[in-house]
Nucleic acid binder design. Structure first.
Lengths: 338, 338
DNA sequence: TCATCTCGTGGAAACGATTACATGGTCGAA
DNA sequence: TTCGACCATGTAATCGTTTCCACGAGATGA
């Protein structure tokens, strides 16, 4: 590998001057700059960012730890994050936690060891010691999508409460009275928030949410299937199942299909997170859409602020209901219709 | 940040001994080892991998440049790669090329600058100079899924030829005679291979593949929609559209749906790459499944071999047909039925 | 004319680890 | 007792940058 030393030699200058020339330092003569440029591309020199980082204490990299790469919601988030980061001159290293606290831990540790300039995390729950340590340490951290209550770190997320209320109104209007929910882990903020909002929205219509209508999932497809199985085995199964993420909705669909039941006639289905496939499932699925890409971009900007030393604030963006056909033929007014 | 020097001081030893103790070097006394351990966790010391990499010329990291993170096929691949790499003690840095040669270039360059130990690429085509340079340089490179013809680098991929022949047999048996294909860019090997295999399979049945039945896509949903639009506007539209990746199939579905046509009655649809959603679209989609995760794992092992200095060989794994309902009611024998 | 300032440059010290080499001590064999 | 081998440790060089400091040469101002 050709180093700055080789360039210096070939250009007949010192490494200091070469370094300055390459970094656009003002006091470098035109002559020197030209010779350096000539030498660098004659030799095909590329600066060693490892050495540079060691010296400057900056890596030009931010870490992103997401809950699950196989979840289209998170890949869309990751894509937006990378795009915005690139625009701001940062690279992104993605860690996939697969909804496992130990993997989240592993990746956060790895990223910190790598001396990333800042960290974006979608924390599974509060059980990752490294995430807590990172939040308390001096590497800038921003939570995105999910957060840890009681930890003082900026959060960029969307608020689904009104959208969930809209959904419940929609379901009620269609005549559904027995509504069930498949939640995420109680430890995740999104898991709790969505079930709380759902319960509150039901209460407005004088409906209760009995325990047997609350399925505890883990944001993975299989758990959605299992919960749906349990619902369908009840002596009085629900009219509607609301899956609080897209993968669990997929699992629910699997189980419903396996039993030869039809949506929405035999049982209705709604989901959280909109993804392109939801328009093409049988039937198209009514869902709550988040401004996913925008969340990613805002989160990166917040982190960049933090890295630059300015304080960053939390942001909450609204989610909205997208009505399709999985809950019955809509005669809706109001919400988006597709 | 606490450095090895601080640990040495606190333990009353030299940095050399501390380094040896931490790296499991044999000749370190038990006493020293204990003091080092005590000091490290008293101070919360974590080795600086940047410094370590500078000295050792190893980063313990491999790069993975994939064509499109929003494509479920590639996320599944990425996940498998990360998993296998983690098992082998490597971290993975993912770069998303978004099917753009300039972005592929950007990421390959960034990864090389970062001095990764090895590189896994799914090259869009031969137009990324950096990818060519990387392949020619001394950083170990393995191509996965796609490759560049004429470049001497191990390739891990799947062969769809027999599966495509099976698909064509299946379509022919169902009575379809006008078969159209939506290909990827001609510059990609997968784009070319799939259309060649399709044409060859048609020839077996004495069928031709007229130019107007070949749509040139770019592996993105919108291009699938556009090609399908063109097909449907022909005076004699095809009976079947075969989309050579899952996103273009989604686009095709969009266009067909927008016209109020039904699959498979009005037009049949088949795809390449199986993804969970294909079981739940309306109707479930007949597709060709690749052993995606296995491809990822094999590719990582090949790369690890290369890094270790042993020669790595190319691998070809077979794809297979998965018959669902999007091409008509199957009365099939042979291929997998779902 | 001389002091002062600016500008371009080079020398050398960091950054935080690993590791070749040197050193002094212990122990077993001759 | 003496010599060599071995073991635990320390000293210092090294990886490839950036950057502080010093220095000489012109330019500027009094």
């Amino acid at each position: 590998m050709v180093s700055i030393k080789d360039v210096a030699e070939s250009a007949g200058l010192s490494v200091a001057t070469v370094s300055r020339a390459l970094n656009g330092h003002p006091s470098v003569s035109d002559d020197a700059r030209e010779r350096v440029l000539a030498a660098t591309d004659a030799l095909g020199y590329r600066p060693n960012v490892v050495a540079r980082s060691l010296r400057t204490h900056r890596t030009g990299t931010i870490g992103l730890v997401i809950s699950d790469v196989l979840n289209p919601y998170f890949t869309e988030l990751a894509r937006a994050v990378e795009e915005e980061a690139r625009e701001l001159g940062y690279s992104v290293i993605i860690g996939n936690a697969d909804e496992r606290a130990d993997l989240e831990d592993h990746h956060v540790r790895g990223l910190l060891d790598r001396r990333i300039d800042g960290l974006l995390v979608s924390p599974a729950d509060g059980r990752s010691p490294m995430t807590l340590e990172a939040a308390a340490g001096d590497t800038p951290v921003v939570f995105v999508d999910r957060w840890i209550t009681g930890v003082d770190v900026p959060v960029v997320r969307s608020d689904g409460r009104t959208a969930i209320a809209d959904l419940v109104d929609h379901l009620y209007a269609l005549g559904h009275r027995r509504l069930a929910i498949i939640t995420g882990p109680a430890a995740t903020t999104t898991g709790r928030e969505r079930v709380d909002a759902f319960r509150a929205a039901l209460a407005v219509h004088g409906l209760a949410l009995p325990d047997e209508y609350v399925g505890r999932g883990d944001f993975q497809a299989e758990s959605g299937r299992v919960c749906t199985e349990r619902f369908l085995n009840l002596t009085q199964p629900p009219d509607v199942v609301f899956a609080t993420d897209n993968l669990m909705a997929l699992g629910a669909l699997d189980e419903i299909g396996a039993r030869g039941l039809r949506v929405p006639d035999d049982i209705a289905l709604a989901a959280f997170d909109d993804i392109p496939w939801f328009s093409h499932t049988d039937p198209p699925i009514t869902t709550i859409a988040q401004p996913t890409a925008e969340l990613g971009r805002v989160a990166v900007r917040a982190l960049a602020d933090l890295i630059a030393g300015s304080p960053a604030s939390s942001t909450v963006l609204p989610a909205h209901l997208v009505v399709r056909r999985s809950c019955g033929e809509p005669e809706t007014k109001g919400a988006t219709r597709e």
